[in-house]
Amino acid sequence: MLQYAAIAMLMLGLYGLLTQRNIIKIIVSINILEIGLNLFIVSVGYVEGGIAPILTSDFNNNGLVFVDPLPSALVLTAIVIGVGTTALGLALAKNIYQKYGTFEIDEMGEE
């Protein structure tokens, strides 16, 4: 079920990119896309009835099953990369606003 939600988020991000012409909205849709992607990454590692992959004191007596830790490690990195690009995008957006005075790409015209 989580996987369908993730794919739906991915598609929503793509829809946003396809239709939006506003700089900020594009950045938002990129973020939605990345969240969808991250969700998908985590969903790949999910095991039915598995618990978080942390060794705790009550772990070794009632034989629990771990969820796949690698995707969550990868997702950690993917999130931070998403943050990096969004920060850069927003900085560029501020620059664009200073230069063109608007966020709508159509109004900016050919440079």
């Binding site: 793509l14 396809l18 239709t19 012409r21 594009i26 790409i105 900016m108």
Partner: peptide, 12 residues
């Protein structure tokens, strides 16, 4: 063009 939608469209 300077709009990213072209690339996204073709990817889809």
């Amino acid at each position: 063009t300077n709009k990213p939608e072209i690339t996204v469209f073709w990817i889809i």
